[in-house]
Every structure is written in C-alpha cells, then in structure tokens.
Simulated assay, not measured.
Amino acid sequence: MSYLANALSMLIQFAFGAIATLFLCRLLAEATRAEFRNPLSQFIYRYTNPVLAPIRKVLPNWRYINLAALLMVWLALLIERVLILALGGIFPQVLGLLVMSLADLVDFVLLFYIVVIFGWSLLSMLSTDPYQPLMRFAGAIADPLLRPLRGKLVAGSIDFSPTVVVIVLLLARILLAQPLLDLGARLSLGNG
C-alpha cells in the first residue's frame, strides 16, 4: 500500500472505530443496566438514539440486548473492512466478508472489554473519585465479567480478578476471533 492509502486506512479505522465504540457503549450500557443519569450515559443515548430509534421499530430488544445497537456495531465494522480492502484493490466474496466482519465484531468487543477493565483497574488503584462519571460507567460495564471472581483472587490487599479476566479475554481473541478471521479470509478468496 502507498503512503496515501496507509493514511486513508488509518483515518477509516479511526472513524469507524469511533462509531462502533459509541454504539457498543450503548449496547453494553443497556445490557448491564448502567445508570442512565450518568452524564456519559446521557451523551451516548443522545447521539445514538436518532439512528437506533427507527431500527428498533423493526428490530426490538431481546431481553436486555439492544439488537439495533449490535447491528450498528457490526455494520460499522463491515463497512470499515470493505473500505480497507477496497483501498488495497481486494474485492472479497460476500460470505467471506460477512465472516470476517463477524470476527471483527467479536475481536472488537473483546478488545473493548480489555481496555475498559484495564483502565478501570488502573484508575481505581490511583484512588480516583468513584463517583466520577467515567469510573461509574466503566465499573458498570466491567462488573458482569469481574463479579464471579471478585474477592476470590486476593493476595494481600490486591485483587487479581481483573488480571485473570484480561488474560481470558486475550486468550479468547487468539482462540476465537483469530480462527474466525482466518476462516473468513479463506472464504473471501474462495478457498473455503
């Protein structure tokens, strides 16, 4: 790829990554029942609702899972994948492209959780105000993954449950997302 194509690729990844992150935050905020009065939750709701409201009329929630937000995350990653491949002059088969975008979705969610748990753990060790909006939001999102191990992996006054969860998430990226991405790449080239 040329330097210009690399620069465009970076801008595409940044733009669609930001869009996917916004809709993923909406999805996880609803799924974890994050506090709606939190200014961060209100920001996310304000900027995602105009897109999600019409889609939710056709694709309603399933339990606490906002399927419209999940669809938007997947579409953002699919469009990102198409644009980056087109920059490289690659036009994959549709089935392979769909599988690769599904792998991108799985990997994106896993990486998002790694960043949230790491950031939340770091900020909580630095005695950050627990009522700060970002801390409350990150804590609400991270809690379902940390709750089963919380208090069970304590040495001294250090809880190692975030470390174990991050290691499991990293392993899931290697053992789940990467093989799915490889399958999608083979299918996109017609080597299924």
Rank of each mutant, 00 (worst) to 15 (best):
I84E: 08
I114S: 08
G89P: 11
L105R: 05
V116Y: 03
A103D: 10
L78Q: 01
L102S: 07
V82G: 12
I84N: 04
M100S: 04
G89Y: 09
D104K: 15
L102V: 12
L87S: 03
V82Y: 13
V115S: 03
F112Q: 02
L95E: 12
G89C: 10
V94S: 10
L110V: 15
V116M: 02
M100G: 01
V109L: 11
I90A: 15
L110H: 14
V109T: 14
L102Q: 02
L97P: 03
F91Q: 13
I114E: 14
L98E: 07
I79W: 01
I114Q: 14
V115H: 03
L110W: 12
L98A: 11
M100Y: 03
Q93P: 07
L98C: 10
R81T: 12
Q93K: 13
F112A: 11
V116Q: 00
R81H: 06
R81I: 06
L110S: 13
V99T: 15
I90P: 09
L83Q: 07
G89N: 13
L87W: 02
Q93L: 15
V99R: 02
L105P: 01
V99S: 11
A103I: 08
L102W: 01
L78G: 00
A86Q: 08
D107M: 10
Q93W: 10
L110E: 12
S101K: 01
I114H: 09
R81D: 08
A103S: 09
I90L: 15
L105G: 09
V116S: 00
L97Y: 01
I79V: 14
V116G: 01
V99H: 07
L78N: 01
Q93S: 13
L110P: 12
V115Y: 05
L78M: 05
M100A: 10
V116H: 02
L78R: 00
L97V: 10
L85Y: 04
I84L: 14
L102F: 06
I114W: 11
L111C: 12
F91I: 15
V82W: 13
L102Y: 00
I114N: 13
I90W: 12
L97D: 02
D107R: 07
I84R: 08
M100P: 02
L87P: 02
V116L: 05
I114R: 08
F108N: 02
Q93R: 14
A86N: 06
V115C: 07
V94L: 15
D107A: 10
I90C: 09
V82I: 15
L97N: 05
L97K: 03
L85G: 04
V115W: 05
I90R: 14
S101T: 07
L83G: 07
G96W: 02
G88H: 09
M100F: 04
Y113A: 13
I79R: 00
R81M: 10
L97T: 04
A103F: 06
L83A: 12
L95S: 08
G96L: 10
L110G: 14
R81L: 11
L110N: 13
G89W: 05
A103E: 11
S101L: 00
V106L: 13
L87D: 12
I79H: 00
Y113K: 11
G89R: 01
A86P: 03
V106N: 09
V109E: 02
M100N: 04
D107S: 11
F108A: 01
A103T: 11
S101E: 00
A103N: 08
L85P: 01
V99G: 03
F112D: 05
R81F: 00
F108C: 08
L87A: 09
L87M: 04
A86F: 08
L102D: 05
L87T: 09
F91P: 06
G88A: 14
